[in-house]
């Protein structure tokens, strides 16, 4: 029986994966063919490679590494570049992807190994813009003010960001020549500035957005809103924060 006849007998999935052994080594590609299972996602393919780590020609290779947690598009950990677009591996269904499926790490971030990247810069960005609501005191501060329902509804949308990094990966202005903190951080500043208690630290967030790598680095390419798996209105958040920093800057200058 010829090879093609075997292939037609058993349905398979063809993957081309860009790999890298350690942070400083050179990337290389390897091809894999795994048995098809109805309804399988990209993670299932990677698990199959891990179970039986052989390449397309049956040669044993080191199993491919990747990150995952929730498997239901909630944690953000499994973001990688799939067929040229950054997205979550756990919700990328093989049936909906063109084959061969090309997997690459999101190189906006330092690659740790294979598809695993180090997204620390995102957490640094969140710290920079103070993406939290300080409620600790030496005594019980009591309940905070209530949030109007109509604001809560859109703020909830923003709160769904899971720091996956797809928006940074797609943004042309997140690159080696800038220190842009990325679209998600601007949206998070908007979220916490909207919260009635978070508002108390509004100015500090605005100052941070006007600081190094801040909102001015955005060039409105608007790729972020196209790739965000949570459908967060990032470009609206950026424009809304532009409005806030503009008023803040003018106001601060007039107060001096």
């Amino acid at each position: 029986m010829t090879a093609t006849a075997v292939e037609t007998k058993r349905k398979t999935v063809h993957l081309i994966i860009e790999r890298q052994d350690n942070p400083d080594s050179k990337p290389y590609t390897q091809e894999f063919v795994v048995p098809y299972v109805p309804g399988m996602n990209v993670i299932a393919c990677l698990m199959e490679i891990q179970r039986n780590p052989v390449d397309k020609d049956g040669k044993p290779v080191a199993p491919v590494t990747w990150e995952m947690n929730c498997l239901e598009e909630i944690c953000g950990a499994c973001m990688m570049v799939i067929n040229g677009k950054p997205r979550q591996a756990c919700t990328s269904l093989v049936d909906q992807l063109e084959q061969p499926i090309r997997l690459k790490p999101a190189r906006t971030f330092p690659v740790v190994r294979d598809l695993v990247v180090d997204r620390s810069r995102m957490f640094d960005a969140l710290k920079k813009i103070k993406a939290w609501i300080p409620i600790d005191g030496t005594y019980d501060l009591g309940p905070g003010p209530r949030m109007p329902e109509k604001d809560r509804q859109w703020a909830y949308e923003l709160s769904r960001c899971f720091t996956c990094g797809a928006c940074l990966e797609a943004c042309p202005n997140v690159n080696e020549r800038t220190s842009f903190i990325g679209p998600f951080a601007i949206s998070q500043a908007r979220l916490f500035n909207e919260h009635p208690t978070g508002q108390m630290h509004r100015e500090e967030r605005l100052e941070a957005l006007m600081g190094e790598g801040g909102i001015h680095e955005c060039g409105n390419a608007q790729n972020c809103v196209e790739v965000c798996p949570k459908g967060i209105p990032l470009t609206t958040s950026i424009a809304a924060m532009n409005r806030q920093v503009t008023w803040h800057a003018i106001g601060a200058w007039l107060k001096k």
Partner: peptide
Amino acid sequence: YVAFTSGYNAGQYSWTRNILF
């Protein structure tokens, strides 16, 4: 300077806004 520090990825992401960017 802005043009130099920008990245260009309209080949990979050919959405209208990115091309206009």
